[in-house]
Computed example of a mutant assay.
Amino acid sequence: MQRPIRFSHCDPAGIVYFPVYFDMFNGAVEDWFTQGLDIDYATMILQRRLGLPIVHAECDFVIPSRMGDTLTLGVLLERLGRSSLQLRINGEHEGQVRLSGSLTVVTTSLDDFAAVPIPDDIREAMKRYQAGCES
């Protein structure tokens, strides 16, 4: 996914303010579901009442990004559990890794906020994607 760095993403030093990256990560996960897994994220949230809250996040900031740069965010599925998954999201600009984040998310019911097993259709789509990542 392409993410242009905008004025609103930057701090007074002119570089991306680090919490903005986590918002970009969340957008990348939404796009990954809709475009990479062919599962409409809005339908999953609003109709199926399934959420994917982040329960752990970390990031290595390698090179600062500035307004006018365009980051390419790639999503790798590193681990697929019963109700959780671990994603690696790398951000690159012109072939240079700018940041690398790791997110652990848990599939939850939005009715009672309890963890639930990943539904079979979503699990199968993730397995196909993961196989593509490994090759």
Rank of each mutant, 00 (worst) to 15 (best):
Y17E: 08
G14C: 00
I63Q: 10
S83K: 13
A57M: 10
I122K: 03
P117Y: 12
S100L: 01
A114K: 15
V75C: 02
V29S: 06
L103Y: 15
P64C: 00
A57P: 13
D111A: 11
P4V: 02
R123K: 08
S8F: 03
H56C: 06
A131I: 10
S100V: 13
T104S: 12
L103Q: 11
G74C: 05
G51I: 12
E30P: 03
P12H: 09
P4C: 03
V116Y: 00
D38E: 15
D23L: 09
M24W: 14
A114W: 12
R128L: 12
I89E: 03
T34A: 10
R79W: 01
E134L: 15
D121F: 14
E124Y: 07
G91R: 02
R66Y: 10
D38W: 07
P119G: 05
P12W: 01
A114I: 11
D40Y: 03
P53C: 03
P19G: 02
R48G: 02
I118Q: 06
F18W: 13
D121L: 09
F18H: 15
H56E: 15
T104Y: 13
M1N: 07
A125W: 05
L80D: 11
L99A: 05
T72N: 01
H9K: 03
W32E: 08
G27E: 13
L85Q: 15
P117W: 10
V16R: 02
L71K: 04
F7L: 10
G81E: 05
T72K: 07
F18L: 13
L85W: 07
V75L: 00
V97D: 08
M1A: 06
F22D: 06
A115F: 14
G27W: 03
L76R: 11
D38G: 06
P119M: 02
Y21S: 02
E124R: 12
H9F: 05
Q86F: 03
D111P: 09
P53I: 06
D38N: 12
G101W: 06
R82G: 15
Q35G: 00
D69I: 01
F33G: 00
G68L: 01
M24F: 15
V105K: 13
A114Q: 15
T43H: 10
G36R: 01
Q86G: 10
L71C: 07
R49S: 14
Q86K: 09
R6W: 05
V55N: 14
V62M: 06
I15L: 09
G81Q: 07
L85E: 11
T104N: 13
S135C: 09
F61M: 09
R82S: 12
Y21G: 03
I63P: 05
H9G: 02
N26M: 14
Y17H: 15
L80S: 04
T70F: 05
V16M: 08
V20S: 08
Q130I: 01
D40G: 05
I45H: 14
R66Q: 14
R3S: 01
D31I: 02
L99M: 13
R88M: 09
H56P: 02
P53V: 07
S8C: 10
Q35D: 10
V106K: 14
L103F: 14
